[in-house]
Structure formats: C-alpha cells, structure tokens
Simulated assay, not measured.
Amino acid sequence: MDLPLVVGVDGSEPGYRALDWAADEAALRGVPLRVVHGSLWERYEGAALARSLGRPDTRDLAGEIVRVGAHRARERHPELPISLAALPEEPEYALVREGRNASLLVVGSRGRSGVVDLLLGSVGLFVAGHTDCPVVVIRGNHDNRARTPVHGRIVVGVGDRSAAAVRFAAEEAARRGAVLHAVRAWRCPAHETIDHPLITGEPERVHEERAAQALEAALADLPPGAKTERSTVEGPARRVLLGAAEEADLLVVGVRRRPGHFGLQLGRTAHTVLHHSPCPVAVVPERD
C-alpha cells in the first residue's frame, strides 16, 4: 500500500497554495493525499483567522478548513484519493506524527511577526527539523511549480552526507522530465593561499578537484541516461545553493538526523535556505 502524501493546511491562502502543490505532487507520484489541520494552529500562526470567520468553536473551524482543502484538491485532480484529518492537538506535533506514515509531508508558511512571505513560520521550521520523512516547505512568495514547472530544473545540494537527498532529487526530476542539477560548494582555507606567493592558486585547484570527485561519487548510482548538470562552486554552501535556486523549481537539501538527539536538527545551510530560498525547499533526512 502506498503511503500518502500529507499536507498541513491552516485556512490561509498561502496554506491552500501549498495544498495545490501537494495535490499536484500526489498526482505525479500516484499516491493518496491526506489533508491535515491541527486545531490549535491559530495559537501560533493565525489567531485572527478564527475571529475573522466568526467561528469560536475550534473543532468546527478545523473541520471546515480540511473540507475546503479537500474540495480544492478534488477540483484540481478529480481522481485523486483524499482523506481528511482535523486533529485536536498542536499543529507541529500533529504533522510530525502524521509524517511517520507518509511518503512526503508538505507545509506552507505565511511568515511571522508581520514579515509576510520573507521568513519561515514556526510550524514549518519545527516540522522540517523533526519529521522522519522528507518535507517540502512552500513559503507564500513561492510560485506553484509542481504542475507547470517554470525552469525544468531540480537542484540538489551535495554535501558529505547526501545519498538520500540525491536519490530524492533524482526521482523528482525523473517524474517531471526535468534536469537534475547537482551542486557542491567548496572552500579553500585562507591560510593555504598565503604560505608562499608563487603557489597561490594551487590549493584552490586541489580543493575544487576534490569537490568535483565528491560530486561524481554522489551521482555514481544514478540510472544511465539521467539528465544531469554538475557544478562545483567556491563559497559557503548556503550562499551557493540560494544562487542555484534562482533557476530551480525545487531545491533539495539533506539534513543529518541523529537517533536519540532532541531539538531542531537542521543545520545552518538548511535553516538558511528554508528562510530565503526563491523556490520550494525539500528537506530530506540523512540517517547516521
């Protein structure tokens, strides 16, 4: 039995745009869509929403939100199997729990403290840092690029532990007939370029070659004929990936998950691209 694609909705238009993306993705994958709402979501992201709708009963509001979401998804994909869940618990914990039995989890974000569309909301950040399955985060300023790709390119950041992220990105590219653009950032420690003025530049070449070798090794298991591009770019990984994401429909990053460790498990690069990427971001757990 195929695991469903789970999408969290909060009743906002950015949230329903994330649902549009999720419905398209579920149709591409041929898996059911599960529309989930945590009934206490408004404590963090939309307290004014319930007041504006004049619905003081949180359970009624939660049911309405998922029903509207299901109707919207069915209009988009009439044959798509859809299930609903209005859960009486904190949204971030509800979604993390739902992610234990999901092929993918999709969340939207409206930003925090009035900074709409610029920074990731608290629920999206928590889910991306704790969920067992891959998570796609779509901020309010992201175009819907699952159904009609804009660039025809999926970008994946290749680090020291990226096997799951590369596999996920390759599968996404294959579903869309898109190019897989694998990017490896590299840095040359400053002290290696100033030891001797006559060999300045040589250390940079060595580090770039090592990056290229690591990139080739990461892509070694891709199927023959896969459409790929490779880039090794000097600079901080977060800056390099944000630059590559300018011409991508999806940016994929791996995050290390340590069994028995608690707290947010994202890392600096994933944290930065989640806040600032110009396209949706997929966060893929890498197991030790």
Rank of each mutant, 00 (worst) to 15 (best):
residue 118 L to I: 13
residue 212 A to D: 13
residue 264 L to D: 08
residue 73 A to N: 01
residue 16 Y to E: 12
residue 132 D to Q: 09
residue 149 P to V: 03
residue 49 L to V: 15
residue 153 R to L: 13
residue 247 E to S: 08
residue 227 K to F: 13
residue 269 T to V: 15
residue 268 R to P: 08
residue 64 E to Q: 07
residue 103 S to L: 09
residue 12 S to N: 08
residue 226 A to E: 15
residue 231 S to I: 13
residue 86 A to S: 02
residue 26 A to Y: 03
residue 167 R to K: 07
residue 251 L to C: 07
residue 42 E to K: 00
residue 246 E to W: 09
residue 186 W to I: 10
residue 171 E to K: 02
residue 47 A to V: 15
residue 82 I to D: 08
residue 285 P to A: 07
residue 157 G to K: 06
residue 129 G to F: 15
residue 87 L to K: 00
residue 158 V to P: 06
residue 30 G to K: 04
residue 213 Q to Y: 10
residue 32 P to Q: 09
residue 150 V to L: 12
residue 61 L to I: 01
residue 223 P to H: 02
residue 152 G to A: 10
residue 112 R to H: 10
residue 36 V to T: 01
residue 187 R to Q: 12
residue 162 S to Q: 02
residue 258 R to V: 15
residue 87 L to P: 00
residue 93 Y to S: 11
residue 200 T to S: 04
residue 52 S to Y: 10
residue 142 H to P: 09
residue 47 A to H: 13
residue 30 G to T: 11
residue 104 L to W: 00
residue 267 G to K: 04
residue 204 E to S: 05
residue 46 G to A: 11
residue 286 E to Q: 10
residue 173 A to L: 08
residue 177 G to D: 10
residue 7 V to N: 01
residue 59 R to M: 03
residue 119 L to W: 13
residue 40 L to E: 15
residue 73 A to L: 03
residue 14 P to C: 08
residue 144 N to S: 10
residue 191 H to E: 15
residue 262 F to T: 13
residue 60 D to I: 06
residue 147 R to Q: 11
residue 17 R to W: 04
residue 259 P to Q: 01
residue 162 S to C: 07
residue 142 H to L: 11
residue 244 A to C: 05
residue 232 T to F: 05
residue 267 G to A: 09
residue 4 P to S: 04
residue 155 V to S: 03
residue 137 V to Y: 00
residue 1 M to R: 04
residue 139 R to G: 10
residue 226 A to I: 13
residue 212 A to M: 11
residue 166 V to R: 02
residue 88 P to H: 04
residue 148 T to L: 12
residue 26 A to M: 10
residue 3 L to S: 05
residue 229 E to G: 04
residue 98 E to C: 03
residue 287 R to S: 11
residue 10 D to F: 01
residue 130 H to L: 03
residue 243 G to L: 11
residue 257 R to E: 14
residue 208 E to L: 08
residue 242 L to Y: 08
residue 52 S to G: 07
residue 257 R to Q: 13
residue 221 D to T: 14
residue 74 R to H: 03
residue 270 A to Y: 03
residue 46 G to D: 14
residue 155 V to K: 01
residue 85 A to D: 01
residue 74 R to K: 07
residue 47 A to C: 08
residue 89 E to A: 12
residue 19 L to M: 03
residue 67 R to S: 01
residue 88 P to T: 04
residue 254 G to H: 05
residue 170 A to V: 05
